[in-house]
């Protein structure tokens, strides 16, 4: 019932040299506590703007963003972020990278406890033994795992994932999908996943939100029947194929390649 994230009627335009560029126009999004929502949509439709809104890094021109019953007016330490670019600090070890947020967020735990938590998370994502390596010594997938640990180390209420697996090869990506399920079981979070990959959206999320082309509004919402951990085999069932077909069709509408049908989101 209680929605941890609630976005109501958000409109936003960027000022550019050639006048205002509307990116969001009537965006609605609600994520219950512990829920995991994937947001898909055509390129450049304003998905990343959405993540910056939830993180409190910018304010919408119109509309409201609520997080845990409080209006978001600025950054808050209860958010963790991971991007397509893992943005690890190359001069720090993996362990020190993961512990970075704890240097910003006020915390009561001792240094030893913080380190123990970072080590536990690294172990959880399969990076045990790499704590003292530098990011340049790790593969792309491993860096992304470390970036995930950094996003979770301060126990955020909300995890914002902006295409974190977008630059990885297909097999590494599937590995990381399964790691995500494992992490969510051990370290429950409420998540928003921005992605271009429809298979990823139905494999990871409980709900998939399709945004229209720019300016983006909520065009379609698909509930994924499976929740919690699932098997990669599920992606090859008729049920999954049907969901993918629906999403594919919605994306085509969003891109303006297919006529809009009468859908109530």
């Amino acid at each position: 019932m209680e929605n941890l994230i609630e976005i109501k009627g958000v409109r936003h335009a960027y000022t550019t040299a050639s006048g205002p560029l509307p990116v969001l126009d009537g965006l609605e999004l609600a994520v219950p506590e512990g829920g995991f929502v994937a947001v898909v949509g055509p390129s450049g439709c304003g998905k990343s703007t959405l993540t910056r809104l939830i993180a409190g890094l910018m304010k919408p021109d119109e509309g409201e963003v609520w997080l845990h019953g409080a209006r978001v007016t600025g950054p808050r330490a209860t958010v963790g972020m991971a991007f397509q670019n893992p943005v690890l600090l190359e001069w720090r070890s993996i362990l020190k990278n993961v512990m970075l947020p704890l240097e910003i967020v006020p915390t009561k735990s001792s240094r030893a406890e913080q380190e123990a938590r970072a080590r536990y998370l690294l172990d959880l994502v399969g990076l045990a033994g790499f704590e003292d390596k530098k990011p340049s010594e790790l593969s792309g997938g491993m860096r992304q795992r470390a970036s995930l640990c950094r996003a979770l180390v301060h126990k955020p209420e909300v995890l914002i994932l902006d295409e974190p697996f977008g630059a990885l090869d297909a097999f590494t990506r599937e590995d990381l999908w399964q790691t995500m399920h494992k992490v969510k079981q051990e370290e429950p979070f409420t998540g928003v996943l921005i992605t271009h990959d429809l298979r990823e959206s139905i494999f990871l999320a409980d709900q998939v939100v399709v945004l229209s082309g720019r300016p983006a509004r909520t065009q379609y919402v698909l509930d994924v029947p499976q929740t919690g951990p699932r098997d990669l085999d599920h992606l090859y069932t008729t049920e999954a194929a049907e969901m993918l077909a629906i999403l594919r069709h919605q994306i085509e509408i969003a891109q303006g390649r297919a006529p809009a049908d009468e859908v109530s989101a």
Binding site: R52, A55, G56, L57, G74, P75, R76, A77, V79, M81, F83, N85, V87, L89, E90, W91, L100, P101, E103, I104, V105, R150, H154
Partner: peptide, 26 residues
């Protein structure tokens, strides 16, 4: 890259924290 800034800014870090922890060493 703006993501470097966002990682710390989203936690409420000040501009000067971003400078000392990331921008300067980078």
């Amino acid at each position: 890259e703006p993501e470097y800034r966002d990682i710390l800014r989203s936690l409420g870090a000040s501009q000067s924290t971003v400078f000392w922890k990331i921008a300067l060493p980078k």
